[in-house]
């Protein structure tokens, strides 16, 4: 259904230990990771055309594990900052630079973490010119 599917599977070098989760079960998964004392490393957002791909990276004893959710454009993603407070900065960043609406962030900068008033929103989205 997406571009990555077109590449033959054996050719792709993908990151190991990745688990696809649904938006509805995301918070439970994250809570489980927190219970198991995983250290939250960061989140990564990717603009895949019709949807966003958001990766959550966790570390335990130098071993990385990832959760991947796919959010269709126009839908919202719940914040994980109620579980991992450390996620508030990166969630604000994704919200602001990609235009992915993340709800209930612990400290919400209202799209003014990096960008100022009057600047075009979501500069990291793929439909924005590169220059």
């Amino acid at each position: 259904m997406m571009e990555t599917m077109e590449i033959k599977p054996q050719e792709i070098i993908d990151i190991p230990n990745i688990r696809d989760v649904d938006v509805s079960e995301l918070l439970d998964r994250v809570k489980k990771a927190a219970d198991e004392k995983r250290r939250f490393v960061t989140m990564t957002a990717l603009d895949r055309g019709d949807h966003f791909e958001v990766l959550y990276h966790f570390d335990r004893d130098l071993h990385l594990e990832h959760l991947r959710v796919r959010v269709p454009k126009g839908q919202t993603l719940p914040s994980i900052s109620s579980v991992y407070l450390a996620a508030f900065l990166v969630e604000n960043e994704i919200k602001e630079l990609f235009g992915l609406e993340i709800t209930d962030i612990a400290i919400d900068y209202q799209n003014h973490l990096y960008l100022i008033e009057g600047v075009e929103p979501a500069p990291m989205a793929k439909d924005k010119p590169l220059e």
């Binding site: 571009e3 050719e11 792709i12 070098i13 993908d14 960061t42 990717l46 603009d47 990276h57 990385l64």
Partner: peptide
């Protein structure tokens, strides 16, 4: 081509790079 994570130690701590490339000479992310 593909996705990869690379981690090294900076003077300030752990540095993480996530790369996504689609086989062209420019990176996807």
């Amino acid at each position: 081509k593909g996705q990869v994570i690379s981690r090294v130690e900076q003077p300030r701590g752990e540095l993480l790079y996530f790369l996504s490339a689609d086989g062209t000479n420019r990176l996807d992310r």
